[in-house]
Amino acid sequence: MTLTASPPSVDGGQQVGRRRSRRASVPYLLLVPALLFYAFVVLWPTLQGAGYAFTDWAGRREAPGFVGLDNFTELFSAPAARSALRNTVVIAVSTTIVQTLVGLALALALHSALASRNLLRTMFFAPALLPPVIIGFLWQYILTPAGPLNDALGAVGLGGLTQNWLGDPSVALASVIAVIIWQNAGLTMVIYLAGLEGVPPELHEAATMDGAGRWQRLRHVTLPLLVPATTIALSLTLIGSLKLFDQVYVMTGGGPGYATETLSVVMYKEAFVSGRYGYSTAIALVLTMIVFAFALLQLRALRRFEVQR
């Protein structure tokens, strides 16, 4: 028997095409309700909010006036806002670096046969489960001049190290950063622990057979395989610290003076204390762009490492 393959007729081809096209469109149609919801709840308010950044909106009934780029000019010229911008970057960079290193160190230390590892993991992760506001109040109390930290330092003969942790402008920002790292290092640890679970033991065995020591195995086997976890940890930490608000507002309110003010704190005060919603929205817009730029740069840089691996 001879089988001949003949091309489908033109009409038949069109029908198949239409059928495929209809079938292909069904998943997209199913997305429509969610997309519409997203558009109304997220996109439209976001765009509207961005529009207010160019107005003098004060939360009143009358229509706000268009002020062009005045709000942005003020943001980059006002000393208090510039200080907040600088503090935000300092917090973001230092928190991201130190928290990642601390989280990695904890993960490496607790990814072992240590009998108490689960207890220790729980202890280190517990602060991340507490609301930031509670953390803020707790540490505000601990760090007062007559608080438990100074008392403890004095009790162990380290009275010379006591500080006015939140009241001295030269120390307050570092204190805030330390609290943030204390709270979130456990979260970074968990991310790295998950990454370590994905490192095949046979690679370590092979490296050991090749004569690699502990440090060489860490440097050339473990760390390269932890790059995806590092990407996640760095991204979450960086974004979280750039928009940091709760702990700062509770512990210092941005003070003393302007020593610990961040863009988020200034944004909040301008909107809800001063009623300058337009200016506050401009700050929010700039903050959004900064977060976006930092996150994009970081992702691109780390992806390169992942590809090389």
Binding site: Q140, T144, P145, N164, G167, D168
Partner: peptide, 16 residues
């Protein structure tokens, strides 16, 4: 004034 006045919250000031 109290030492470290900028780091003292209201309740601790009153308690002192």
């Amino acid at each position: 004034f109290s030492d470290g006045m900028l780091g003292i919250p209201a309740d601790q000031g009153m308690q002192s």
